[in-house]
């Protein structure tokens, strides 16, 4: 085999493959969606849900503060005889 044979073979060497009718469709199906589309999707689907959640939480907080008779819970056990937890140190 000579260099000329190789050149001739390279000229003829080609896979007999051509695109089928669905090639463009397959490529289009693999296209990455643009960021702006993702933002629009998020705005459309996530934002309403977020707003609804915020509204529910706000209503719950307001309802808690408006409950009649609610009083702050004391931090220490209150008893008539125990004003200070360290009172026993002063007892003889």
């Amino acid at each position: 085999m000579t260099e000329e044979h190789v050149r001739q073979a390279l000229r003829e060497r080609r896979a007999n493959v051509s695109p089928d009718a669905g090639f463009a469709v397959r490529v289009l199906a693999r296209l990455p969606r643009r960021e702006i589309s993702s933002l629009a999707w998020a705005a459309w689907h996530v934002l309403p849900a977020s707003l609804a959640l915020v509204a529910v939480l706000a209503v719950a907080v307001i309802a808690t503060h408006r409950t009649p008779g609610a009083s702050p819970t004391p931090n220490v056990t209150s008893s008539p005889s125990a004003g200070d937890p360290l009172d026993w140190l002063l007892q003889p």
Binding site: R13, A15, N16, V17, S18, P19, F23, A24, V27, L28
Partner: peptide, 26 residues
């Protein structure tokens, strides 16, 4: 998609120079 359809034959022909299997060319 229209651009793909315009240039797909050329791209396949070129890739077919280097690869023999259909799946590689595709």
């Amino acid at each position: 998609g229209e651009l793909i359809r315009r240039h797909q034959n050329r791209v396949f022909r070129l890739a077919g120079r280097f690869f023999r299997e259909r799946e590689d060319v595709e």
